[in-house]
Amino acid sequence: MIGFTEIVKALLGAQVRFVVIGGVAGVLHGGSRLTNDLDLCYDAAPDNVERLIGVLHGWEPYPRGWPPGLPFVLDTRTFATTPLLTLTPHLGDLDLLDRVEPIGDYAAVRDASVDLPILGVTLPTLDLPALLRVKRHVNRRKDQEAVHELEALLALRQPGATD
């Protein structure tokens, strides 16, 4: 089983441009909610997509929810026609998005991210205010629950906190 750490290190090692978003970003900021999904927003520029595909091919990616055994080709055309690609390599669930509402495309998401020091590298991660905006926008039940935790984290991180 390939873990989150191995995935992000492989992507960074291949110089793939991406930002960690979603539940894992929440955990990196201090959240406690368990998540099986690694959600990444990637730069859709052709050179970046090529590098991303190169890394993913090593993990035998397959669309999540598809019946087993169907033909699936992961190439630049797949990325160009699939704004949200949900994959199940044998690592768990990996969601790849080329834009995140209501933030925008990769450039906007990168602008709203922070570089977290982790495992000897820096990991671009959506910042807490932007993560809150996304959760409020998506507004599923689990997002509503996450909003309260993210708000608390944001409050706890404020300078001058006394308790």
């Binding site: 989150f4 750490t5 955990v27 201090g30 998540t35 495992l119």
Partner: peptide, 11 residues
């Protein structure tokens, strides 16, 4: 680092 490791262990 610890937060990520803890998440991975829980998953």
């Amino acid at each position: 680092d610890e937060r990520l490791r803890l998440l991975e262990a829980n998953v």
